[in-house]
């Protein structure tokens, strides 16, 4: 079963806000100068910000903010965020892999930006909604 796709807009302002809230002030997430110096095309989103947005999609599908039992991802491709008002977009979809007898649902999650997968092995286990 496929779950309905969810889309998240990501702008530079979102990255600044996430840096402050999370305490991750690595300059590759706010300075084009530093990002390009280390070989990136420009400022990229924090991997953990992408993971947090995908986590929002997962809790949305679960129908409850406290229903996530396990959640893991591999970061495979940076999410480049241009310095304009639109930023970029992350699209998140998921497929139900398994519904267990003890009330758990296992999801295989896909997150893409500009048509390219930005995560791999993205999996979440949620308590099955009653």
């Amino acid at each position: 079963m496929e779950l309905p796709a969810q889309t998240f807009q990501v702008t530079r302002a979102d990255l600044v806000r996430y840096a402050g809230a999370s305490g991750d002030f690595n300059p590759i997430h706010w300075s084009d100068r530093v990002a390009t110096t280390v070989g990136l095309p420009g400022v990229i989103a924090h991997g953990m910000f992408t993971m947090a947005l995908v986590g929002r999609a997962v809790t949305e599908w679960a129908g409850s903010p406290d229903a996530v039992v396990e959640y893991g991802v591999r970061f495979t491709r940076p999410v480049v965020v241009p310095d304009d008002d639109q930023g970029t977009e992350i699209e998140v979809t998921a497929r139900v892999r398994e519904v267990t007898e003890d009330g758990l649902t296992r999801l295989e999650v896909t997150a893409t930006c500009l048509g390219e997968k930005v995560l791999s092995q993205a999996r979440a286990t949620i308590r099955t909604a009653r």
Binding site: R17, A21, M51, A52, L53, G55, R56, S64, P65, V68
Partner: peptide, 30 residues
């Protein structure tokens, strides 16, 4: 929660969190 756009009341309102059986506001998964 605000920084990641998570608007569920259980992240913000202690009463909403208590209604789910938690003692206070619930943190997002990450």
């Amino acid at each position: 929660a605000s920084a990641i756009g998570a608007t569920d009341p259980a992240h913000h309102d202690p009463e909403a969190a208590r209604a789910l059986g938690h003692p206070d506001v619930v943190a997002p998964p990450t």
